[in-house]
Write a protein that binds this DNA or RNA. Structure first.
Lengths: 285, 285
DNA sequence: CTTGTTTTTGTAACTTTACTACATTTAGAC
DNA sequence: GTCTAAATGTAGTAAAGTTACAAAAACAAG
């Protein structure tokens, strides 16, 4: 991964002073490469060794090496740079930055994907008798989306963000039932409980969540998206986008695995949806 | 023209010693950027000021600046490719292709965004008394997600994918109420009806949908994502991702517009959510 | 082929820049 | 509150780059 994106993605690993340096560099990277360590330190209101340590933490040999790598990372004509939103940004800038950081996060997620659990998930879903997608908060809409896709298929599927409904489903689950639990952190208590119940019933519990999290402990399979820390400090953004794309990939795999006859069915479903829409010609004004 | 090409093309303008330096750099440019001026001079069997003069002749401020420019001239990017999924692709290939095509679609969407309706949407939302997010099918989960974000805010908001609930809300809507209608095609009959009702009641109807569609006719504001044809022929994929990111941008704009005090509130909401999660064990800060 | 002039190159002092060792402060754990 | 560990800063040192100037080389004219 290139340096400038690493700076923004590893921001949480930095100390307070180092974060000041990171913010400054992300704000005006073109300017930073022409500064000396002393002037950069002064501007960031930290000491010179702090800047030096910051460079080392990023794997550079020292400050000059850091500048070199930063310059390369800038020259790369990076299609998208991951920079923080500033207080005085206008709407256009904000929009571009949000798109950029999402693109960046997705690109990183793509590179760090492990296809084995994805393949195993596809297998499990193809063999499933019924499928449930559960999640809370932002992950609820991800689960909602996943179920919406599976509604096109012939395997019964449900979505719920209601703990009681989820619990009932988990209690009634059996082997060959699949439960897909979605949670970015993997630490949502309620969801862990549900997963544990389904697991006890020998259902296949799949977690789209963080590895080594309490939730993943209760999952037979864990699929993770290695997304850098979200841009926005208040709510999940890029992480859930990565989850959605991951689910798209799983669905694409599922569709292919089911074979050509299955895809014929899908075409019929699509055709059937037309009745709910205005046709193209009639309404064009 | 970039530096390294200039060095080779202007060789005849250099003096004898300078040519030695040029030859060395053209031979192994990657190595040169990691050398000090002294070591480079020794290697080229010239003096240090000669190297310095050489840099100046190329329009650089000095040797460090020269290294920086050389580094940039060496760097190059790697774009992602948009390829269709083949019948015999394995899961890994499918996953990569889905991610690639989503990245591609997002990147195109970013470039073709018009910030004016986005800014107007932010304005409308900031001034809203209550907000509704409606959509059907795949767009329902997008609406769901949007409402989930707004649940953190102090303006009352609802999500629904139930036509009756939507109709009731629309009938009761008033000026300063905002209705956000989400539909990729903009041709979903049920949603158009709802939009028309709310529009008649002088509510602000915002469409996240296709321009010049039946739905956009009933909207005061239309925000569009110009997404290329979806990869998958059976269900929306990239289009709804673009919608979600667009909504993220709107929310980021909204959050900023509301000012610092508002963001303090958000921090408190986030803090309050911790109770629903298992705490992190002592790993890294 | 000299001698004066210009250009090129190198030497050495100087300035700036970056790094290291250590002291101080701050934050966290008990 | 006290102890411990981490983070940050201070000051000194080493290294790198630049400048001024002198020596050498190249060139031209007598």
């Amino acid at each position: 991964m290139d340096l400038i994106n690493r700076i923004s993605s590893e921001q949480n690993q930095f100390s307070k002073s180092e974060r000041k340096v990171a913010a400054l560099i992300l704000h005006e990277p073109e300017q930073a490469i022409h500064r000396s360590i002393a002037s950069l330190a002064a501007l960031a209101e930290v000491s010179e060794p702090t800047v030096n340590r910051f460079c080392r933490r990023l794997g550079c040999k020292g400050y000059p090496d850091f500048k070199l790598q930063l310059a390369q990372s800038l020259a790369q004509g990076t299609p998208f740079v991951n920079r923080d939103i500033e207080e005085d940004d206008n709407v256009d800038q904000i929009t571009q930055k949000i798109f950029d950081s999402t693109l960046n996060a997705l690109s990183i997620a793509r590179q760090s994907l492990d296809s084995r659990p994805i393949a195993a998930t596809v297998e499990a879903l193809v063999g499933a008798r019924k499928i449930a997608f559960f999640g809370f908060g932002a992950s609820a809409s991800v689960a909602h989306d996943a179920q919406n896709k599976f509604a096109r298929f012939d395997t019964p599927s449900v979505f719920s963000d209601d703990p009681l409904v989820q619990r009932m489903w988990a209690i009634n689950s059996e082997p060959h039932d699949v439960l897909v639990c979605i949670s970015h952190t993997g630490r949502t208590k309620a969801l862990c409980e549900i997963a544990a119940i389904a697991h006890d019933n020998k259902a296949t519990v799949i977690g789209i969540t963080a590895p080594n999290s309490p939730l993943s402990e209760n999952c037979q399979l864990t699929v993770s998206t290695n997304v850098p820390e979200d841009t926005d400090q208040y709510m999940p953004m890029a992480s859930r986008i990565a989850q959605l794309v991951l689910i798209d990939a799983i669905i694409a795999g599922y569709t292919l695995q089911r074979g050509p006859k299955f895809r014929e069915k899908l075409a019929r479903v699509k055709e059937g949806l037309k009745g709910s829409r205005y046709s193209k010609q009639a309404t064009t004004k």
